[in-house]
Amino acid sequence: MSFDKFKPKYKIHSETENYFKLRAEAGAKPYDQLTVEEAREGNIANAKRFAGTTEFEGTVKEFTVPSKQCSDGIPITVYRSKQCDLCVAPSVFVYFHGGGNVVGCRQTVDTICRIFSRDAPCVVVNVEYRLAPEHKWPANHEDAICVVRWVKMNKGLLGAVNRSTVGVGGDGEGSRMAALVCHEVPDLGYQVTCIFHASAA
Rank of each mutant, 00 (worst) to 15 (best):
R49L: 11
F196G: 06
Q191Y: 07
V181R: 04
G100K: 06
I195E: 09
D119N: 14
E38Y: 06
V102Q: 10
M1Q: 13
I145M: 06
R176W: 15
E134N: 11
M1E: 14
E184M: 11
F116M: 13
G172P: 04
Y129M: 01
D32I: 03
G73P: 01
C84D: 01
K5L: 00
G104T: 10
Q33T: 06
C70Y: 15
R40G: 00
E128D: 15
T16R: 00
V78H: 04
T53N: 10
G52Q: 07
T111H: 06
A144L: 02
Q107N: 07
H141K: 11
T35Q: 01
V60L: 11
D72Y: 02
F63D: 03
V185T: 06
T16P: 03
N126D: 15
G167N: 08
P133S: 09
L158Y: 07
K152D: 02
L34T: 03
K152E: 05
E38V: 03
T165W: 12
T111F: 04
K7H: 07
G189D: 06
S199I: 08
A28T: 05
M153Y: 07
K29T: 00
V192E: 09
F50R: 09
R176S: 15
G156D: 13
A120W: 10
L86A: 15
F63I: 09
F116I: 12
H13I: 02
N18H: 15
R130F: 05
G170E: 13
A120T: 14
G73Y: 05
G98K: 07
L180V: 12
L180C: 14
A47S: 11
A47D: 10
G58P: 07
K152Y: 07
V125D: 03
C182K: 09
R163L: 01
I74L: 05
V36H: 04
V88G: 10
D32N: 14
C194M: 14
T111L: 04
V185C: 00
K136H: 10
M153P: 04
D110N: 12
E173D: 15
L157N: 00
H141A: 13
G156S: 11
V94G: 13
K29A: 07
N18F: 11
